[in-house]
Structure formats: structure tokens, C-alpha cells
């Protein structure tokens, strides 16, 4: 494969990636940017409104307020819960300071779940004796290796932290009746190497539990 062929292969592999935002929506957002530049006081108002909206999104499920095409989707820095078109739920965890928030969002996305840090599992949860075949249908997970400093910003960041990312794909439709999922993870700093802070991320093997109001919320 010569250089041109390789570049063509790489470029062609992205042809399915298309911008979906309508231009008039960009223009509206652009006018807001321009207005904030002209009147910086508006920036504070807009920021406060944005923060309030984010807090609302985090603290309540409010599925009715979400567009029907993406029920239950929420994007956060620490973790992301995203419903996939096939009904599965993709959970990306970058830190777990707020397990209760992630638990609430999973439940809102249709996954009866108990989420805790490792060692603080909910005592109300009773393990469900699922076979490995059943577990394989419900979960697929990945913990990325400790990231090397693979992405430097365009300007240097003084004290980067390298942290792994846990990705868990849950298939609620594959859950046996009357069961839910139990997730426990922990992120902890382990070393400081020069100017770099290094963390570990641990995901305890996700398991099935009997669903109950005290454990999985339903």
C-alpha cells in the first residue's frame, strides 16, 4: 500500500462522519457569542443559566424534557451515559466522585442499577447467580490502559494528569427478569512522576443483582 492509497483508505473511512447541526442553529449560537462579546455582562447571565440547566440535567432524570431521539442522554466531564440506537447503554467513566449521580442517570436510562465506589457496595443488594453467558450478553467492558501523554494540547499544560477511562456497554434487554446491575469502581492517584499526576482506575467485574427498591431503585 503506497502513501496515496493509505491516505485514501483513511480518508474514505470517515465518509460516514457528517456534521448534523443545521447552519441556522450555528448562526444563532454565533449571534449569542457576538452579543456576549459586545456586552460581557450577558456572559455571566448566560453562564449562570447554563450552570442551572446543567445542574438540572444532573440532578433530575426528566426524560420528558429530552428530545425523543436521545432519551436519557447526558454528557458530563466525569462520566457519560449514552443510550445507543440498539437500546444498549454506553457508560464512560473518567472519575467516580459522584456514584449516586451516575446511578440515577443509569436508572433514568432504563437500567436498574446500583453504583458505588469499591468497598462501599450497597448491603441491600443480593447477588444474582448469573451464568457467564448471561453476563456476557448483558455487559461488555473495557478499561483503557494508563494513558501515555498521547495528546498534548496545542499549548503545554503544566501539570497533566493521566487517568484511565472505563467504558462499559450494558444491554438492558438481556437482563433476566427481576434483576439489575451492580457497578463498583475506584479512581485513585498512585504516583506523581515529575510534573505528571498518575491515577489508576479499577472497575470491579460488573455483576447482576436481584432488583429491589433498596438496591436498584425498582
Amino acid at each position: 500500500m503506497n502513501d496515496t492509497e493509505l491516505i485514501t483508505v483513511v480518508r474514505d473511512s470517515f465518509t460516514g462522519v457528517r456534521a448534523t447541526t443545521p447552519p441556522d442553529q450555528i448562526a444563532r449560537r454565533g449571534r449569542a457569542v457576538r452579543a456576549r462579546r459586545r456586552n460581557p455582562a450577558l456572559a455571566g447571565v448566560a453562564l449562570a443559566a447554563g450552570a442551572a440547566a446543567a445542574a438540572f440535567a444532573v440532578s433530575t432524570s426528566a426524560p420528558a424534557t429530552h428530545p425523543p431521539a436521545q432519551p436519557g442522554n447526558v454528557q458530563l466531564a466525569a462520566w457519560t451515559v449514552a443510550k445507543q440506537p440498539d437500546g444498549s447503554v454506553r457508560v464512560t467513566i473518567r472519575e467516580l466522585m459522584d456514584p449516586a449521580g451516575l446511578q440515577a442517570k443509569l436508572r433514568a436510562a432504563g437500567v436498574p442499577a446500583s453504583v458505588t465506589t469499591i468497598g462501599a457496595q450497597n448491603a441491600s443488594c443480593r447477588p444474582y447467580p448469573a451464568s457467564s453467558a448471561v453476563k456476557a450478553k448483558v455487559f461488555s467492558s473495557t478499561i483503557s490502559p494508563l494513558f501515555p501523554p498521547s495528546q498534548q494540547p496545542l499549548a503545554t499544560t503544566p501539570a497533566p494528569t493521566f487517568t484511565p477511562i472505563i467504558v462499559l456497554l450494558i444491554h438492558p434487554a438481556a437482563l433476566p427478569a427481576g434483576t439489575g446491575v451492580q457497578i463498583a469502581a475506584r479512581f485513585a492517584p498512585v504516583a506523581s512522576h515529575g510534573a505528571e499526576n498518575i491515577q489508576t482506575g479499577t472497575l470491579q467485574r460488573p455483576s447482576l443483582v436481584y432488583a429491589s427498591p433498596a438496591c436498584t431503585g425498582s
Binding site: Q84, P85, D86, Q151
Partner: peptide, 25 residues
């Protein structure tokens, strides 16, 4: 205060999930 890192596994997960709305890379 962290360096953003690409989420390789998330991309693979997206592909595995068969995101029909936007064909995966």
C-alpha cells in the same frame, strides 16, 4: 486540570453498538 485524552475504547464501543444514525469509522 487534566490533559484531554482520546477514548479509544469508546470509539470501538460505538462501532460495536452499531450506531446507525452515524455510521462508525
Amino acid at each position: 486540570r487534566e490533559v484531554p485524552v482520546p477514548d479509544i475504547a469508546a470509539v470501538a464501543g460505538l462501532a460495536a453498538a452499531g450506531d446507525t444514525a452515524s455510521p462508525p469509522v
